[in-house]
Each structure stands twice: as C-alpha cells, then as structure tokens.
Simulated scan of single mutants.
Amino acid sequence: MFDFALMAEKVMQFRTQIAEAVGETFLMVGISVAAAVLLGLPLGTMLFLTAKGQLYENRTWSALLNGFVNVVRSFPFLLLVVFMIPLTRLLVGTAIGTLAASVPLGVVSIAIYARQVEQSLVEVPRGVVGAALSMGASKLEVVMKFLYVEARSGLVLGLTTSTISFISYSTVMGVVGGGGVGDFAIRYGYQRFETELMAAVIVLMIVLVQLIQFAGSRISRWLDKR
C-alpha cells in the first residue's frame, strides 16, 4: 500500500522540479498540437481530396501522401527520434533539450492528426459536396464552408485523441534530454527508488489526460449539430 502522506511530502519536496517537468511537457505537447493543426489538418485534407472519387483525385499524390503518413506512424518512435537527430540539429541548432525533442514529436503529430482528419472528412455524407457544388461553391469553399463545418465535431475529437497520444510520446523524450514529466518520473522516481514520488507523477499524468479528454469530448458534443 502507498503511504499517501509520504506521497504528499515527496510532491512538496520536489515541487519545483515537478513544475519544471510539467512546463517542459506542456511545451512539447503545445508545439505538437500547433504542428498538428497547422500542417496535419491540411495534410489530412489533401489525403481526403486526392483519394479516388474526390474533388482533386490524383493517384500519384494520394500514394505519396499516404506513404508518408504510413511510414511515420509505423516507425518505432525512439528510433525515429534518433534517426531525425541530423535534421533536428539543422533546424534548432542542437539535438538535446526540450525544443529539440519537439521536432520528432511534431513530425509524428502531423502524421497522426492527418489520419484523424482524413477519417473525419470521410464520414461527411457525400451529398454535402454535391449540394455545395450545385449551389456554385468553389472547391475551396466546399472544403472551408461545408466539409470542415460538417466534420468539426470529429476534427475536435480527433485532435483530443491525438493530443493524448502526444502526451504519451512525450514521456520518453528524456532519451534526448527533452525532460518532461515522464523523464522526471524515471530519474527522480524509478532510478532513486522513490515509489511514492513516481506514483504521484503517474496520478498527475492520469488527471491531465482525463481533463483533456473531458474538455475535448464536451466541445465535440457542443459542435455536433446533427
């Protein structure tokens, strides 16, 4: 059984380090979410639009985009982090640290959310596109004013699920000195045999994930007008 009094004592003892670790996690996940929205959303949209029977059907581009997403998503994450060290060093000037850790995490986030976006758009009834075109909407307007509007609930829910995945990935970024809550739990909890401290950090992560899931689900239901 855990000694909850000792757990609280350990949390207070290491509160500065915990706060720093939480900040590092927020930075990595925040950059990942930004990359997912800014690049994953358009990538997922192009995955949908270039597929067979869609507005911009193109077998070559569809194969290339799907190949990129499939390779990144299937690549073992730790190996991807190591594989991307030269690119990371080129982009941020170093391969160590929280910012450097955000580079491979950002690439994975783009691929993960792109697939979520594609799936959300696939679920939009095909009649929506036909109706939009019959009203004289341009292809850009079809995407912005019809597809995204119809799929907004799924897009939010997909981003929520993706964000939780980003948090999970961020816990292993200590391998490149990325820090974060996961790295803190390993260095201060596991390696020092501070079981109560490690348990407290795990509880913190669970609470964080539950809050994100709750907020995302509520927003998704609010946006779902069907």
Rank of each mutant, 00 (worst) to 15 (best):
G127V: 12
E196Y: 10
L79P: 01
L87G: 04
E141T: 15
V82C: 12
K145R: 15
R187I: 04
P42E: 06
G216R: 00
F146W: 12
Y190A: 04
W222F: 14
I206R: 04
G40M: 05
V129Y: 04
G97C: 04
I202V: 15
Q119N: 13
Q13A: 14
A137E: 04
F77H: 00
M144Q: 14
S162G: 11
G93C: 10
E194M: 12
V176Y: 08
F68K: 06
P76A: 08
G93F: 13
A95Y: 08
R115Q: 13
A100F: 01
G182Q: 06
T98D: 01
W222L: 10
A101D: 01
A95M: 11
V103L: 05
E118D: 05
R115N: 13
K225Y: 14
A34M: 13
T163N: 03
Q116I: 02
G30P: 12
S153R: 09
T88W: 01
Y113G: 03
L39A: 12
A137F: 14
V142K: 08
E57W: 08
K225H: 15
V22I: 15
G179R: 01
A199R: 07
I212V: 15
A19Q: 04
A101W: 00
S74M: 03
G136V: 12
V124G: 02
Y113K: 04
L80S: 05
V11Q: 09
S165P: 02
S153K: 07
L155V: 04
L157C: 06
A185F: 08
F48W: 07
L197M: 09
V81E: 05
S62Y: 08
G127S: 10
T160F: 10
S162T: 13
S134M: 14
W61V: 07
G40Q: 03
L157N: 11
R187D: 00
G40Y: 03
S170F: 06
W61Y: 11
S102L: 07
L121P: 05
E194V: 04
V71E: 01
I219G: 04
G158L: 01
A36S: 12
R115A: 10
M12S: 10
D224H: 11
W61P: 00
L147F: 08
M12E: 06
F26W: 11
G154L: 11
S220W: 01
L204G: 02
V129S: 10
L43N: 07
A114P: 08
I206G: 03
V107L: 14
R89M: 15
A100G: 05
A131P: 09
D3Y: 07
Q17D: 12
K225V: 15
T25F: 03
V71H: 09
E9K: 12
